[in-house]
């Protein structure tokens, strides 16, 4: 019998790019090993069966191990786990200003073309900024590439998973709720020496609200109540 013997394995650790990596070398037992005695086999199998039964009874007697959620009864208190990928969302600070400056990295990273960005130039600061952030949930595979690509930590996953709709045009979202300068631009503008208060006001006044469904939608360009038709250009 050949098998992997954990007792004969050697352990070592190396560092790869500052991250410690454990290496376990487990030699296979020689193929010509002597067959174990009947009693040893019996003892080992009974022991491993009992170990299995111990594991399952552990789950049975501890109701805290249950992972099932009583949705929708607990809709109010439902808390998704840390790494849950619900829907894409733009990060906003406490004043409601977003981090995203429309740099296009996420659009380029997306393998499905699920992100479409439109930029504009701010008339006050002269900087390029986000006009509209379109995210197509209908073609997104939740691969996380966009979030990893973002250099400004401007994207995150929300907990929301209730995205079912009757019309697939409603799956095309405008993620930004305003078009205008991101939080970084505003800060830098304020810090610039000798900027009068009314100039800051002027900068903030360039912000325009954007509705979730205010952008272009697919479906052969036809409109529907509350959703304007798709602009193809």
């Amino acid at each position: 019998m050949s098998y992997i013997d954990p007792k004969k394995s050697s352990r070592s650790a190396i560092e790869v790019g500052g991250v410690p990596v454990n290496i376990v070398v487990a030699p296979r037992g020689a193929t010509g090993d002597k067959r174990e005695g009947l009693l040893t086999i019996f003892y080992k199998s009974v022991k491993s069966l009992l170990t299995g039964m111990k594991v399952t009874i552990g789950y049975l007697v501890r109701p805290s191990t249950v992972v099932t959620q009583q949705y929708p009864e607990n809709r109010e208190t439902l808390k998704m786990f840390e790494r849950f990928r619900g829907q894409l969302r733009l990060v906003k600070d406490e004043n409601g200003y977003m981090n995203c400056n429309g740099c296009d990295f996420c659009e380029k990273a997306c393998p499905n073309g699920s992100i479409i960005l439109q930029d504009r130039r701010n008339s006050v600061s002269g900087k390029s900024e986000l006009e509209r952030y379109l995210w197509r949930l209908d073609s997104c595979t939740f691969c996380n590439a966009c979030i990893q690509a973002c250099p400004h930590d401007a994207l995150e996953w929300s907990d929301g998973f209730e995205a079912a709709v009757y019309d697939r045009r409603l799956l095309v979202y405008t993620l930004n709720d305003y078009a205008g300068p991101p939080v970084n631009h505003i800060k830098r503008f304020k810090k610039k020496a000798g900027t009068p208060e009314d100039r800051v006001e002027e900068l903030l006044a360039t912000m325009e609200p954007r509705h979730q469904y205010g952008g272009p939608t697919p479906l052969s360009g036809k409109g529907m109540p509350g959703v304007p038709p798709l602009k193809t250009d």
Binding site: T56, Y59, P63, T65, V66, T68, Q70
Partner: peptide
């Protein structure tokens, strides 16, 4: 029910 709790589920509810 028993199966569910063995598998960290709740079973019929």
């Amino acid at each position: 029910k028993v199966a569910a709790h063995f598998q960290c589920r709740l079973g019929p509810m």
